[in-house]
Amino acid sequence: MKRPLKRLLGRRELVDFPAFALGGVEAKVDTGAYTSAIHCTDIHVEVAGRPRPVLTVRLLDPGHADADGRALTFTEFALRDIRSSNGEVQERYVIRAVVRLYGEDFEVDFSLSDRSDMKYPVLLGRSLLRQGRFVVDVAKRNLSYKSLAPAAARRVRP
């Protein structure tokens, strides 16, 4: 049986979030992290007067590069223990979101955390890398976006 080809990702990639109308967001590819993460602030759950709890966050706050800071709400979410890069276990809210790489959409779990002290607002973990059958070349960058540029240039030509 033939194995599917694996696509190459660089250590940094530009990703799109179609449901959030966000494109070209810088992401760090982290093979050491299992769960992907996205930068949010003002993370809180509203319960009163609602049939289901609602998670409200400010996505990519205005103080961060490539930010838009608008509020988003989610009715589907979970609270999980996530081990941070320094080894501490933290409770974080987790949502499912679609991330686009190589023009293909992947549904991935993202933990929501304040990454304002980090260089990149998005972290792509192993759960996405396995799902998309990716291999990481740490010497490369933005391979997904670069692969789409020639196709876009061909469409523009008369």
Results as ranks from 00 to 15, higher is better:
residue 3 R to T: 07
residue 3 R to W: 13
residue 3 R to E: 00
residue 5 L to I: 11
residue 6 K to E: 12
residue 7 R to T: 04
residue 10 G to R: 07
residue 13 E to G: 05
residue 14 L to Y: 01
residue 17 F to G: 02
residue 18 P to Y: 06
residue 20 F to N: 02
residue 22 L to H: 09
residue 24 G to M: 06
residue 25 V to G: 04
residue 31 T to Y: 01
residue 31 T to Q: 00
residue 34 Y to V: 04
residue 35 T to D: 07
residue 35 T to K: 14
residue 36 S to V: 10
residue 39 H to K: 10
residue 41 T to E: 15
residue 42 D to E: 11
residue 43 I to K: 07
residue 44 H to D: 05
residue 44 H to F: 05
residue 45 V to S: 08
residue 46 E to Q: 13
residue 46 E to D: 10
residue 46 E to V: 15
residue 48 A to N: 10
residue 49 G to L: 04
residue 56 T to A: 13
residue 57 V to E: 07
residue 58 R to S: 01
residue 58 R to K: 07
residue 60 L to F: 03
residue 62 P to R: 15
residue 62 P to W: 10
residue 66 D to A: 12
residue 68 D to S: 13
residue 69 G to E: 02
residue 69 G to I: 06
residue 72 L to M: 13
residue 73 T to M: 11
residue 73 T to F: 06
residue 75 T to Q: 15
residue 77 F to D: 00
residue 78 A to Y: 12
residue 82 I to T: 10
residue 82 I to A: 09
residue 97 A to N: 08
residue 97 A to F: 01
residue 99 V to Y: 08
residue 99 V to P: 12
residue 100 R to N: 11
residue 100 R to G: 09
residue 100 R to A: 06
residue 104 E to L: 04
residue 106 F to Q: 02
residue 107 E to D: 01
residue 107 E to V: 14
residue 108 V to P: 00
residue 112 L to P: 01
residue 113 S to K: 00
residue 115 R to E: 02
residue 117 D to E: 14
residue 117 D to Q: 14
residue 117 D to F: 05
residue 120 Y to D: 03
residue 122 V to I: 14
residue 124 L to G: 00
residue 125 G to D: 08
residue 129 L to C: 02
residue 130 R to Y: 12
residue 142 N to F: 15
residue 143 L to M: 10
residue 144 S to F: 07
residue 145 Y to R: 15
residue 147 S to M: 11
residue 149 A to S: 06
residue 151 A to Q: 15
residue 153 A to D: 09
residue 153 A to T: 06
residue 154 R to D: 04
residue 154 R to C: 07
residue 155 R to D: 10
residue 156 V to Q: 15
residue 157 R to H: 08
residue 157 R to C: 07
